Simulated assay, not measured.
Amino acid sequence: MKRFILLAVATVFFAFQIAVATAAAIELDEDIRTVPLNEQGQTTVLSLEQVKQGKRLFNDSCAQCHEGGRTKTNPNVNLSTVTLSGAEPPRDNLAALVDYIKNPTTYDGEIEIYELHPSTRSSDLFPEMRNLTEEDLESIAGHILLEQKIRGIRWGGGKVYN
């Protein structure tokens, strides 16, 4: 009898978890999923599939150095939109972030750092970048821009907020 009760409680618990996880995905309405596309001010709406794919790819390829939007190697440069907009060239839109993932430069844009920072250009040095398609790069960039909208100051804000 005791096993039956524990089984029933576990079933209810897991059913509740599924319902909560589904509700979280629904909360990402079109307004939240709208991110800047380019420097000309155009926007794009990320699909729910892009959101899911972007999070997975970011966690697989980027999170070891950029967990929570921080940059472990340089805490002064994080992935918040404020910081990204201050870069040269600005990296606060989807196209600019995709370009950066292909050809990374220092924050001031002066020096190429593809041998130090994972990029599709240096996939021989960084195997996690080898199989990323253009759509994958757009999903990763979309995730970076979306997280700022979802997590606010906690995205890139350091250990205090995570």
Score class of each variant (00 low, 15 high):
42 Q>P: 00
13 F>D: 03
26 I>K: 14
143 H>F: 15
149 K>M: 02
117 H>N: 11
26 I>L: 14
125 L>D: 02
75 P>N: 05
28 L>Y: 11
89 P>K: 08
94 L>W: 05
72 K>V: 14
125 L>N: 04
33 R>D: 03
43 T>S: 13
30 E>M: 09
74 N>Y: 07
46 L>S: 07
162 N>H: 08
38 N>Y: 01
140 I>E: 01
35 V>M: 06
114 Y>S: 14
84 L>A: 07
80 S>E: 01
69 G>M: 03
65 C>K: 10
132 L>N: 05
79 L>H: 00
108 D>R: 09
81 T>E: 03
44 T>V: 15
50 Q>E: 15
107 Y>N: 12
82 V>S: 09
140 I>N: 01
17 Q>L: 15
10 A>P: 00
139 S>F: 06
71 T>A: 12
6 L>G: 10
108 D>F: 02
87 A>T: 12
54 G>V: 09
86 G>Q: 13
156 G>C: 08
124 D>F: 10
24 A>E: 11
75 P>C: 04
105 T>C: 06
108 D>H: 06
132 L>F: 02
134 E>Y: 05
49 E>Q: 14
127 P>C: 07
71 T>R: 10
97 L>K: 05
91 R>F: 01
51 V>I: 07
62 C>L: 11
3 R>Y: 07
39 E>A: 15
84 L>I: 07
139 S>E: 03
18 I>Q: 09
